[in-house]
Amino acid sequence: ATHLNESDKTLRDFSEALDMWTAFQTKTHSLSLSLSSQLRLILTPSQSTKLSGSFRTGKRLNIKKIIPYIASSYKRDKIWMRRSIPSKRSYQILLCVDDSSSMGDNSSSSGRLALESLVMVARALTMLEVGQVGVMGFGSDVFVAHELTAPLFASHDAGARMLQHFTFRQEMTDMCRLLRNTIDHFRDARLMQTGSSGGEDLWQLALILSDGLVQSKDHARLRPLLREAMEQRVMVVFIVMDDAAQNKKGHSVLELKEARFGSDGMPVIHRYLDSFPFPYYLIVHHLEDLPGALAALLRTWFAEVTA
């Protein structure tokens, strides 16, 4: 079951959150437009690849119609197939933001970059109107900051209420719990959706915005969850916030190493990202990189799954 514990959470002051939403929206407006137009090309199918139907003219002969065509003395002449009208796709997109204190630590500006990215992406998806958009936060616990079924972020109020939830004070980064919750949340949401509209082609996508710091011992525990997500046809993209403007040289997660002791007591040092279990991840050093990088990743993924 989804565990949503709100009782012990202190929210950010509403007027402060409103100022943040307004400032981030202004700052990222052109990036939102850019992401929105790039995603429109990727997420909305403009041509169907499948040939079907029976027409007098078309692209390819429908072999099954040939014998009736001859048998009818060439009267039943709708023997051609055409490209059919693309099926309408709909999306459920969950933006999952790391609310753990490593994001807001004094030595890190990942939290701010994550919130700017969140506002930019949420606004782009609102302009796109391809389906439902929800926002979740995670740390030691998982919470919903904006329900999938709630209206999109058309007003500053809705945006500010969502931002209020992120204070970066959670004292753990439980990525396993986030994935468990995300999979369950999407399973319920799919049932709700197919119950109401049906027929439509439903795609589910989770974007995780985080500094990427997960306990290495959890990397192995995440793999079966990622497989389960894939089996449920949930696409998970991990966006690593790695602020190049604020981080001092040598502080990038790309250079982060980890030390372990072997059974002989000797330290062994590995690159942290070498055991990172997410198959689809991208690293964002500057906010301006995000629209292009995210679009490229989704384009590759769609090409793979629709091939």
């Binding site: 290495s216 001092k248 040289k249 040598g250 502080h251 250079e255 982060l256 190493k257 980890e258 030390a259 372990r260 002791f261 040092i269 942290y272």
Partner: peptide, 10 residues
Amino acid sequence: PETKRQLLVP
């Protein structure tokens, strides 16, 4: 060196 200053340790 700068690239070795941050580390995850037990």
